[in-house]
Simulated scan of single mutants.
Amino acid sequence: MHNSALVAWGAIMRREMLIIGRHQLEWMNPLFFFVLVITLLPLAVSPSAEQLAPIAPGMIWIAALLSVMLGMDGLFRSDFEDGTLEQMVLSSQSLSWLVSAKVVAYWLVTGLPLTLISPLLGMMLSMSSENILTLFLGLLLGTLSLCLIGAIGAALTVGLRRGGVLLALLVLPLYVPILIFGAGAVTTSALTGSASGQFALMGALLALALPLAPLASAAALKISING
């Protein structure tokens, strides 16, 4: 890989982090939403550990999925509106390569914080330590896949004024396998002591999403700009 490509990738990452630093409250909304949903769950269902523990993994995964998607609509929108996206398209660097930097930056401020705080929320919902570890590892794999897939929907709807609903309709069906494998890993681990099968499937999905999602996002961005 050429040094110029690494320099460009690093420049995009630095730019994204600077923008995030200037809008900290806006970028913390997914984390606030995630914590709020899980905190309200015992009030809506029951504070009983016997009732909370079985549904906790599924609820945490659903809340994480919705939280990641919450800010996805704005992933490319500001760049589209101020002309930065056109400069990225005209750049000598691969657009998919630059897009991957934006997605990783988004994951660092959304998916990763959700993953790091999930053990605490799992304890609050009376999950066992083994299940909490399985949940944590699953979210670590799954949230990056969610961000990569969501970027495709964000790229397709970047030119629309109210693309949030359409974005949800586009990406939610693609999110379902990750949700099933992620929540199922905790259940399987509790029953058999191992969730290697689910982790292998989630790893395979991530391995496919890492190269293919930025390519699809770049193609969608070019269509949105030219259209």
Score class of each variant (00 low, 15 high):
A11R: 15
A11G: 05
A11T: 13
R14A: 11
E16T: 05
I19V: 10
I20G: 03
R22L: 10
H23P: 00
Q24S: 10
Q24K: 15
Q24Y: 13
E26R: 15
E26A: 15
E26N: 12
M28I: 09
F32W: 15
F33H: 09
V37P: 01
V37F: 10
P42L: 06
L43C: 06
P47I: 06
P47K: 12
S48V: 07
A53D: 07
A56L: 02
I60D: 02
I60Y: 00
W61A: 05
I62R: 00
A64C: 07
A64Q: 04
A64V: 07
L66S: 09
V68P: 00
D73C: 06
G74L: 11
F80E: 08
E81Q: 14
D82E: 07
E86W: 10
E86R: 12
Q87G: 14
L90Y: 05
Q93D: 09
L95W: 06
W97V: 13
L98I: 04
S100R: 15
A105H: 04
Y106T: 11
W107D: 02
W107E: 03
G111T: 03
P113M: 05
L116H: 05
I117W: 00
S118P: 00
P119T: 04
L120I: 15
G122R: 05
M123G: 14
M124F: 13
S126G: 01
S126T: 07
S128Q: 09
S128W: 00
I132Q: 04
L133K: 06
L133W: 10
L133Y: 05
L135Q: 10
L135H: 03
F136G: 00
L137R: 06
L141R: 04
L141G: 04
